[in-house]
Design a protein around this nucleic acid. Structure first.
Length: 583
RNA sequence: CGGGGCGUAGCGCAGCCUGGUUAGCGCGCCUGCCUUGGGAGCAGGAGGUCGGAGGUUCGAAUCCUCUCGCCCCGACCA
């Protein structure tokens, strides 16, 4: 491609709307333009980068035995009503009526459609396993779109769905996808981590997220940094997101301390943990706080140690609830008749559950369920009972790895992929069955596998940039090489640039020729900004010494070679680097 | 949804508080000259219903009301 003919409107100044690096650079480098909130147009270079990611995804999905399809964007409400998600999905699902007043929606994901397809067309175990995927524009009406391509309302996603006949087969498929995802993100040249995750609104039994590691990530991950050997004998690589991450279970008490008598103390105006513990002269670790949550409309009291925090997703999973939210002060008072700050489990009318750490606490402080009073020396089992115990709290960096006991470290990441083992939740809801070898009707065991394609490009920029612009990894760069003709009026230079351009094209290299009538400085700046991995400069040094300069965008190293060697040199380097990543 | 902010040329902004000639500046864009290894210089030029509607006023980018759009923050740890 010749730069002079390319729609590549780079900007010297940063548009005011852009907050994060990837958004700023995507705009400045002329990759995207915003149409409206959370909705972007992809310009030629932006699209080229997206296509590169798509192509890697396709190759690896196909290699793993999946087949590509393309499902409709517009979907009838009926299917969503049938699966139960018309009600559950909430306002992110953009709904509308067509001219016949039929309820419809724009697909934010395609479990319903694919399950419908399979139930109508696959009826025998002989056709299993089946793994279908598509790469398509999705629409989710996000509450607050932000960060450009990182959290748009419209975005490009690869979503895949697998159908298996047995648990073993389904698990094998899941593992195969896990491997495919590892290969995909490695081939994209990204530094990433697979972490254990909650299954969220999609539902299912287990799940991993693929996170690109970057300071600006929206998610926090807990990863084991011990390098210890896990019981399995492998190096421990435990990693989980905050919704899922756990520490080691609490150590049992070495010796059972004497239980002291329960004692009611006046604590006027002391509501917050810090205020109460300071007033009582105890550590927050010796207080149990009582948090009121609303789970599917029903109140539940959650007990956690004073210095811990409830992890709502863990609570949701323990209760088997669809929706869990913390009650506000008014709701909490309505449920318990006690003002927040003095809530306690003794005499609590609503369901009480406890974090497992509470079970190893003795003689601790709690609210007295009465304004301005707390109890000292409360004990679980003697003074109150709970209906369930489990890991309900957020891990901290003080916790130890649940697998090997090593040190946990928190890092930020950007979710670019998510795989779920769904089980039979959708096949049951939509009555999708096949006949097994015994002629018995069975539900398909499903999995689903997503990759945020447009987000992957943004995440890559978050991870790979410098002051001058984007630094694309070679495999997803919109062009592999940019040739700068530094003196378009000089015939000798122009001819040399042209020769290299034709030579690279003939060798199948993706190359951009900057043939614009611009000063060299502008060309350098633009080349840096758009992040092309290899920059070839044809200028003075060619007319004077016959040398072509080849410079790497990532580390700035450059070499000078004779014209005759330029093409071969680049081709060899590019091949070698791509091979290394796809090995 | 709540809170805050912004909307003036393609982009970035000033002007508004304290109403008053032809509404400015930088970048970009067009023409010419000049220059050519890190976003040069000179000269000339195009481009604005000041987001929209209504109101106050002799007079509104400026004051008031409504409206639309966009950006940022916010999911409550008692």
């Amino acid at each position: 491609m010749r730069y002079s003919q390319l729609l590549l409107p780079t900007l010297k100044e940063t548009p005011a709307e852009a907050e994060v690096v990837s958004h700023r650079l995507l705009l400045r480098a002329g990759f995207i333009r915003k149409l409206t909130s959370g909705v972007y147009t992809y310009l030629p270079l932006g699209l080229a980068a997206i296509r590169k990611v798509e192509q890697i995804v396709r190759q690896e999905m196909n290699r793993a035995g999946a087949q590509e399809v393309l499902l409709p964007v517009v979907q009838p409400a009926d299917l969503w009503i049938e699966s139960g998600r018309w009600v559950k999905y909430g306002p992110e699902l953009l709904r509308f009526k067509d001219r016949h007043e039929r309820e419809s929606c724009l697909g934010p994901t395609h479990e319903e459609v694919i399950t419908d397809l399979v139930r109508k067309n696959v009826h025998s175990y002989k056709n299993l396993p089946l793994n279908l995927y598509q790469i398509q524009t999705k629409f989710r009406d996000e509450i607050r779109p932000r960060f450009g391509l990182m959290r748009g309302r419209e975005f490009i996603m690869k979503d895949g769905y697998s159908f298996d006949g047995t648990e073993d087969a389904a698990n094998a498929t899941y593992n195969k996808m896990h491997e495919a995802y590892q290969r995909i993100f490695k081939r994209c040249g990204l530094s990433f981590r697979a972490v254990e995750a909650d299954t969220g609104s999609i539902g299912g039994s287990f799940s991993h997220e693929f996170m690109v590691l970057a300071e600006t990530g929206e998610d926090t991950l807990a990863i084991c940094k011990s390098g210890n050997k896990a019981p399995s004998g492998e190096i421990c690589n435990y990693a989980a997101n905050m919704e899922k991450a756990a520490g080691q279970p609490p150590a049992p008490l070495v010796s059972e301390p004497q239980l002291l008598p329960l004692k009611k103390i006046e604590t006027p105006g002391k509501r917050k943990v810090q205020a109460v513990t300071e007033f009582l002269g105890i550590a927050p670790q010796n207080l149990v706080k009582t948090m009121i949550y609303v789970a599917d409309g029903k109140p539940v009291a959650v007990l956690v140690r004073g210095d811990h925090e409830v992890q709502p997703v863990k609570l949701k999973n323990m209760l088997g609830a669809v929706d869990v939210e913390m009650a506000d002060d008014k709701q909490a008072f309505g449920f318990t008749g006690v003002p927040t700050g003095y809530l306690g489990p003794v005499g609590m009318k609503i369901t009480v559950v406890a974090d497992r750490e509470v079970t190893v606490m003795r003689n601790f402080a709690i609210g007295a369920s009465e304004k301005n009073y707390h109890y000292l020396n409360a004990n679980l089992g003697r003074d109150f009972e709970v209906s369930a115990v489990g890991d309900l709290r957020m891990v901290t960096e003080d916790d130890c790895c649940p697998v090997c006991g090593g040190e946990l470290e928190f890092t930020k990441g950007i979710e670019v992929g998510h795989i779920f083992k769904l089980g039979t939740s959708y096949s049951e809801a939509l009555q999708a069955t096949f006949l097994d070898g015994n002629g018995k009707e069975q539900f398909f065991i499903m999995g689903c596998y997503g990759i945020g394609v447009s987000r992957t490009v943004a995440a890559s920029i978050e991870q790979n940039h410098d002051q001058d612009g984007i630094v694309f990894p070679l495999p997803i760069a919109p062009y592999q090489v940019v040739i700068l003709n530094l003196s378009p009026k000089d015939e000798q230079i122009t001819q040399a640039a042209e020769d290299i351009y034709q030579g690279l094209l003939a060798a199948g290299v993706e190359v951009l020729l900057d043939d614009r009538d611009e000063r060299p400085g502008s060309k350098f700046k633009d080349a840096d900004l758009i992040g092309i991995p290899f920059r070839v400069m044809v200028g003075k040094s060619f007319t004077q010494e016959g040398l072509i300069e080849i410079r790497r965008r990532d580390n700035g190293q450059s070499i000078s070679v004779p014209l005759s060697e330029a093409v071969d040199n680049l081709v060899a380097t590019i091949r070698a680097e791509l091979n290394e990543l796809s090995a």
